[in-house]
């Protein structure tokens, strides 16, 4: 369905990031403009439950016709959690876009309610830049 928001996203932005607080299932019922992403990232914590939730979201995303869905392993205590994410996400069939390390700078910014300062959280920023590159690569491959 065409919507003015859809046109604005196409014409006025190169990248539109939708923070899907209500979940894709809710957004899909609300008209679709926000639900149908080119790429969906599922943020997960290093716990089996969180990755299982990710797998369920992945299945739902496929049902909705979202073409590319990946998990992101967040708050990873390295190196152990990187392996945990790879193993358990593999078990549940969740492809990973990247792993983001746990970072005291991020925890501090969260506590203060401030954005992460430009000189803070270098390992997290590097991991995020890698995810951006990964997503670009997926879209290039898709043509």
């Amino acid at each position: 369905m065409r919507s003015l928001l859809g046109a604005a996203i196409e014409e006025e932005a190169d990248v539109t990031l939708v923070d899907m607080e209500a979940g894709i299932e809710h957004l899909s019922r609300s008209g679709g403009t926000l639900a149908y992403a080119d790429v969906l990232l599922i943020v997960m914590e290093p716990s089996r439950k969180s990755i299982l939730t990710g797998a369920r979201t992945l299945a739902l995303a496929e049902e909705l016709g979202i073409p590319r869905t990946f998990g992101v392993g967040n708050k990873a205590r390295l190196p152990d959690d990187a392996e945990f994410f790879a193993t358990v996400a593999g078990e549940y069939g969740v492809p990973l876009a990247g792993i983001v390390p746990q970072d005291p700078d991020v925890i501090e910014a969260d506590r203060l309610g401030t954005p992460l300062g430009p000189d803070k959280g270098a390992p997290v920023r590097a991991a995020v830049a890698e995810i951006v590159a990964f997503v670009d690569e997926q879209l290039v491959q898709a043509g």
């Binding site: 899907m20 149908y36 080119d38 992101v72 920023r125």
Partner: peptide, 21 residues
């Protein structure tokens, strides 16, 4: 390009969304 970010509360979704943006 439209990128959706989803995740349960407490996963760090909003922090990550901001950093991606």
């Amino acid at each position: 390009m439209k990128l959706g970010v989803v995740g349960k509360g407490g996963t760090g979704k909003t922090t990550l969304s901001a950093l991606l943006a």
